[in-house]
Design a binder for these strands. Sequence first.
DNA 1: CGGTCTGCAATTGTCTACAATAGTTTGACT
DNA 2: AGTCAAACTATTGTAGACAATTGCAGACCG
Lengths: 253, 253
Amino acid sequence: MTAVNDPVPDPGAPEQRIVKPPSMVDLAARSVRQMILGGTLIPGERVVENRLTAQLGISRPPLREALRMLEHEGLIRQSQHRGAVVTPLTLHDVYEIVTFRRELERMAVVLGVPVADTDRLQRCWTAIRRMEAAVDARDEAELSEANFDFHLAVVGLAGHRRLEASYRSLQLQMQLCMALNRNARSRRKESASANMLRHRKLLRIIEDGDPDAVLAELEHHGDRTFLADLPASLDNGSDQAVAWLEKERAHPA
Amino acid sequence: MTAVNDPVPDPGAPEQRIVKPPSMVDLAARSVRQMILGGTLIPGERVVENRLTAQLGISRPPLREALRMLEHEGLIRQSQHRGAVVTPLTLHDVYEIVTFRRELERMAVVLGVPVADTDRLQRCWTAIRRMEAAVDARDEAELSEANFDFHLAVVGLAGHRRLEASYRSLQLQMQLCMALNRNARSRRKESASANMLRHRKLLRIIEDGDPDAVLAELEHHGDRTFLADLPASLDNGSDQAVAWLEKERAHPA
DNA sequence: CGGTCTGCAATTGTCTACAATAGTTTGACT
DNA sequence: AGTCAAACTATTGTAGACAATTGCAGACCG
């Protein structure tokens, strides 16, 4: 089903940006990533190599390298002779992800906000247009991906490759979190247009060039709605994390 | 020479913390890492798989996974069918590494400085003791590694695994930078005792529990000496980076 | 003499097969 | 009947071989 070798050239879709055909390990990584983020593989579940090789139609060596990549992205965890499991999220993980992500955004704004290169802004606008098209087309998956790209493009304003890479990793893990409480996703749907407005507003403020204003706007952009209803499935968190969540929720919106 | 399979049990050294014998890929990654950071492989040089497998006495699959890890650590870069090269550092890379590293330290202090867990402080003190022992023994390599552990332990005070992992990666790349201007290393030697004093002082301030004081101390702890004499070999940096370096050097110590 | 094309060598990407380890189940003994 | 141990199964770790792609060298042509 999710076979990598399927020729699917996406005839109607916009031309793939990847000119070079990605290697098997990249394709495998992408496939497994989508399985995890799409909910096919749920956190805590074992990731058996043979099963995946059969499903993807590839051999084990490239798959193993792909898994190694996913491990560094934080989506799975591997241990010696025991195989890999989809990262079982605890409250502490949510704490780490949210705080780290926020901090990286802050840093990106501070470093990049009087935007130096116009191309970087272009990238943001392109992502926004993609999002709008996805909203019009009612394409949930495309919207999610475009939203991902938008945030990445905003962080990319800093012109800081390492920062952007770290942010990408965290964003992926954030999606893993959100894959948990998929049921509570519906309410975000009708606010899609409002969401777009917020994004455009943010970008305009960025263009104005005042870092502090951007930071202030980012406050509202935040993950409050996400933190409001965390799935009950994640129990065991450190007391450090629960204390943080308390404070976070107490903080006025 | 650098063969992985050499049984070298380090008879006199303190017992390895790794109870489980690390897998081949971990050993391979460690070996190649040391080759890179030790100057055996210089930035820009090609990393040929077959050569390394012959030197390390292992097969290619584990080596490939090890290289994949090093790529995520930022020490090498791989491209399709073209193999891997040791990351060729530009001034822009130095800019990214230094700024990112500093920011992560800041975040770690903010999150972790009224230290919650005593064990974390213990870890810092242990690292300090290791450094002192290394200074007494005139063991340069051990000192470097202990110093590495100390910084990592300080960041670890935050109890934030992802933060610590990112910091570790950056610290490695920092070492890669310093491997470039190895000639200018001698002057740091006689200041080793002063260095130790600064470290102890930092740790005492941390124990006091005032984040701002720690941040102030970290300012002096900085990379000014490192930025003072950058090797002339790294030329091509972005104008963004050169502007930053200007400002950085203008800033009073 | 410069540019381009073709063939070769080197290196990487992938696959199949084998060895070793961890977890599990079954059996025997207490 | 309960518990410990040993063998077994499933899964991962590693090795060597094959296929595909790239970059270069030399020759050919303009």
